[in-house]
Design a protein around this nucleic acid. Structure first.
Ligand SMILES: [Mn+2]
Ligand SMILES: [Mn+2]
Ligand SMILES: [Zn+2]
Ligand SMILES: [Zn+2]
Lengths: 122, 122
DNA sequence: AAATTAAATAGGAATGATTACTATTTACAA
DNA sequence: TTGTAAATAGTAATCATTCCTATTTAATTT
């Protein structure tokens, strides 16, 4: 993999963000440093960074969002403002029961907890 | 809400399916009964049926799939063939811990268990 | 320090899922 | 029956994302 200033920039933007941004937001941030960077470059590098384990992606309804926190973790999602909040909540499921009851070999759980974040408590 | 043959048909197609189909599949099925039904009509009515609680929708990566099973339930998702399998697995999370630790008011959990269905066991 | 080469880019076109628009059709009530 | 507004078919538009390609650039070789 050849060095690319754009790719390093995109990685740093995602890694230092806490909002789980989408490609468009990353693009706008990147333009502050490379004024003529193209959106295609952002998408291509986000995918490369994901495939090489440098960042993670989250499918949030009809959009892809990116996460600079590559630790295994889950999220709270605010239904009011769309915020995604990192948690250390563990998912515990009964592997054997799933295999027995459904003839299915599980190996990962994805979940979000939907609700309201503190911004909306009156 | 005025009666519409197309809407009843779309409802019956989703209700009787077990595959959690997308709009395109529902459209193809519907054409077997109403040859010139339009895709827009399918999308519009799927949304109406969802909003009136007659069916549910599931965001599966970048596509919306529909579910005729309106009971509260979760799914196993096969990473090999994309199959979604209904389960009666319950999500148990500690509501109080979430409120205390994250200042977040949870009210629903969405999860999938990813893995391989029986079709891929050698 | 040039010349070489293939990877990466910018910019724009294409795609695919979904939604919006609009003239026509249809359910249903007066 | 006739009047009406809701629903439809057909099509155009939108939005996120991917694809294409001429040009630029990082890295290797002279
Ligand atoms: Mn996260
Ligand atoms: Mn289901
Ligand atoms: Zn919020
Ligand atoms: Zn499968």
């Amino acid at each position: 993999m050849r060095y690319s200033y754009q790719r390093e920039l995109i990685k740093d933007i995602v890694r230092s963000s806490k909002t789980h941004p989408n490609a468009e937001w990353v693009f706008c941030e990147a333009k502050k440093k490379v004024e003529n960077i193209s959106l295609g470059t952002v998408y291509r590098n986000l995918k490369i960074l994901e495939n090489t384990g440098k960042i993670k992606s989250i499918h949030d309804d009809n959009q892809v969002r990116y996460d600079g926190n590559i630790e295994d973790h889950h999220h709270l999602k605010c239904v009011k403002c769309g915020a995604l909040i990192d948690t250390d909540i563990q998912s515990n499921f009964d592997r054997k029961k799933i295999m027995d009851d459904y003839d299915f070999e599980p190996n990962e759980v994805k979940f979000f907890i939907l609700g309201k974040c503190k911004k909306h408590t009156k």
